[in-house]
Design a protein around this nucleic acid. Structure first.
Length: 256
DNA sequence: CGAGTTTGACCCGCGC
DNA sequence: GCGCGGGTCAAACTCG
């Protein structure tokens, strides 16, 4: 399966009074094997002008988007847990029989520190910049052409926090020009800009303990919707960060 | 002027 | 020991 996320949207700039969101359409392919999210923004027609109607529409769209984000997030979490259990349980049990608890703990910490994740990200094949938006801030410190792949490999360090040890390597795939292979090394010791927003939202949405409750609930928390709207207007990249974070999670699961 | 990028030089591990 | 290749450093450069 190939999950692609189309981020072809113009950010909504609050200071730009000439245009505002006329319609935000959220399409979702129901096929489980292919999650395809896309947003569209159209230029405003001044004659169409009922702002409160548009606000209501926007809220509805946000509710749907949040519904889908939440159920997707739950699904991804479950997949990762299943995978972890499948991969580790037999080995772990056998290993724990022979190794002392403390050694196991130390080994686990070591593994967490040296964790390497490979993520495949679909990009525009004509885009040569090797830039992958994943909600973190990166500083490029090198570029090399490797033997096995004619396209250069770029080296990045996380520059969001000075103490963050995470590095990533980005290289175009040999097989598919429209796919870049991103290798992450280490664990972030801070939240991404996108996670900061999601964290705030999670606090707001604690009342929704399960996705079923959300789907059964006829009326969503207005405050939550308002807050999402605030994030959308304050952070013009919020939507793309959200989409990028979700897509990287999906692709991450695919990789395993 | 500060932050980020580019790029050649350098370091280090590995295979022969 | 030598050469090769991947990874990192750091000075020069670019850009906002």
């Amino acid at each position: 399966m190939a999950a692609t996320i189309d981020l072809n949207l113009s950010p909504v700039c609050p200071s730009d009074h000439g245009t505002h969101v006329k319609e935000v359409s959220f399409s979702h392919d129901d096929d489980d094997d292919d999650d395809d999210l896309s947003f569209e923004k159209e230029a405003d027609d001044p004659s169409a002008g009922d702002l409160s109607n548009e606000n209501t529409k926007l809220k509805e769209k946000l509710i749907i988007a949040y519904d889908k984000y939440y159920s997707l997030k739950t699904h991804v979490k479950k997949l990762m847990q299943d995978k972890e259990e499948l991969e580790w349980s037999p080995r772990k049990r056998k290993f724990e029989d022979t190794v002392q608890q403390s050694s196991w703990k130390r080994l686990n910490e070591e593994l967490a520190r040296s964790e390497t994740k490979i993520v495949y990200v679909r990009i525009d094949p004509s885009d040569k910049s090797l830039v992958v938006k994943d909600g973190y801030q990166w500083r490029k410190y090198g570029q090399k052409v490797t033997r096995d792949n004619p396209s250069p490999r770029a080296y990045y360090k996380c520059s969001f926090a000075p103490t963050c040890p995470v590095k990533k390597k980005v290289q175009r795939s040999m097989d598919d020009d429209g796919v870049v292979v991103v290798t992450y090394e280490g664990e972030h010791n801070h939240r991404s800009t996108m996670q900061e927003a999601a964290y705030a939202l999670a606090h707001e949405s604690e009342i929704f303990s399960t996705s079923e409750r959300m789907f059964n609930s006829p009326k969503l928390d207005e405050g939550l919707v308002e807050q999402m709207a605030t994030y959308l207007s304050k952070d013009s990249n919020f939507t793309s960060k959200l989409a990028a974070a979700i897509s990287s999670k999906i692709l991450e699961v695919e990789t395993f």
